[in-house]
């Protein structure tokens, strides 16, 4: 489009001036237009792919590093810390009290993170402000019991291999919505390879449709 406009503007000024047109001039205008178009396309494409996600998400560090692998080897499976309450609700991230079942003011390890944990939180009796990668928006109701007990799903299916991780990656927050990037997924185009790559409503619906035959009514997952 721009190529054509360039060319025609070019032509009209010439015509106004001389009343004649030269085809060579026209081609030059067209060529410039094409180059302009291509350059603009590349600039937009690259900035959209690489720059835009950086602008859209702010990176936040966890209060200190948490080694999942170490904890699972010491304490047992996920449910050792992420358990169900008696009323069926899911406890989510453990409170400091749960940590204190094993930890005390005497550091259990020699890492710097252990030192921060003890000094900043155990000694002061302060809850750890974890940033939850899989935090869903306020309007979402998610029943862990329905999925892991009733449907017998594995934690990995949605959360990936976080239990085997040794470092806490930075938490990426969408500057517009305030939601975690894990909801949309790492891939800017929204393409996923694993079932845990994204946690969008579409992903819930896809699985529900496959396994229950219906993607679910609104209130199944909304509150």
């Amino acid at each position: 489009m721009s190529a054509i406009e360039n060319k025609s503007e070019n032509r009209s000024t010439e015509n106004a001036g001389e009343g004649v047109s030269e085809d060579t001039r026209d081609d030059k205008g067209l060529g410039l237009g094409v180059i302009f178009f291509l350059v603009a396309f590349v600039v937009c494409f690259l900035s959209g792919t690489f720059l835009f996600p950086k602008l859209l998400y702010s990176k936040k560090e966890q209060p200190f590093n948490f080694d999942h692998a170490l904890h699972t080897s010491e304490a047992g499976d996920c449910e050792a810390c992420h358990y169900y309450r008696e009323d069926g609700t899911y406890s989510g991230n453990p409170k400091l009290a749960s940590c204190l079942d094993c930890h005390s003011e005497e550091p259990l390890g020699e890492t710097e993170d252990e030192a921060i944990f003890v000094e900043e939180y155990v000694v002061k009796g302060k809850e750890i402000p974890w940033l939850v990668y899989s935090r869903q928006p306020d309007c979402v109701f998610f029943s862990h019991a329905a999925h892991t007990i009733k449907a017998k799903m594995d934690c990995v299916e949605c959360h990936g291999h976080i239990g085997e991780s040794t470092v806490s990656r930075p938490y990426e927050e969408n500057r517009l919505t305030g939601y975690s990037r894990d909801i949309w997924g790492k891939n800017i185009f929204g393409i996923k390879k694993n079932s845990w790559d994204r946690m969008k409503m579409d992903d819930c619906a896809e699985c529900h449709k496959e396994r229950t035959g219906h993607q679910g009514y609104c209130f199944q997952c909304h509150k």
């Binding site: 054509i4 025609s8 004649v20 047109s21």
Partner: peptide, 14 residues
């Protein structure tokens, strides 16, 4: 229409 107009413009005689 746009393509045809571009074509017509290029094939314009004075």
């Amino acid at each position: 229409v746009v393509i045809k107009s571009a074509y017509d413009t290029m094939n314009d005689s004075g």
